[in-house]
């Protein structure tokens, strides 16, 4: 197994970890953290794709690298927006939770699903 594949498997495992955290952890902030973990695992998959396609004197294919740079910035923007939402929710309700049943307010606008 070469280094690229090793980091690729690491990325796959990180995707698994991140996904697990995103699904099971109830705290929004921890979900955001898990999303970032998931994201970095996905980026590593791009890294493997780039590395194993090394040619023309380059250490890797630059196209996936450029895509990762774009995606990292997008992920940061998403994190910033999610955190702003969590903090605003805290301001409004005194708590940060996705669970509507204990949000304290009157849940008049919610469905019964």
């Amino acid at each position: 197994m070469n280094a690229a594949t090793l980091f690729g498997l690491c990325g796959a495992a990180l995707v698994g970890f991140g996904l697990y955290g995103l699904v099971t952890n109830p705290e929004p902030l921890r979900k955001i953290l898990a999303f970032n973990l998931l994201g970095s695992g996905v980026f590593l998959v791009f890294g493997v794709v780039s590395r194993r396609a090394a040619a023309s004197g380059l250490g890797g294919d630059p196209v996936p690298q450029a895509m990762v740079i774009t995606a990292i910035v997008v992920a940061f923007a998403a994190t910033a927006m999610a955190i702003a939402l969590v903090l605003r929710l805290l301001q409004e309700t005194g708590r940060s939770t996705l669970n509507a049943d204990n949000s304290g307010g009157t849940n008049t606008d919610r469905g019964n699903s």
């Binding site: 980091f7 690491c10 493997v48 250490g59 890797g60 690298q65 450029a66 990762v68 740079i69």
Partner: peptide
């Protein structure tokens, strides 16, 4: 890890 994958631009980012 990104440096090890020869992607220094990504490593910096």
């Amino acid at each position: 890890a990104w440096v090890r994958l020869s992607a220094v631009d990504v490593a910096l980012t």
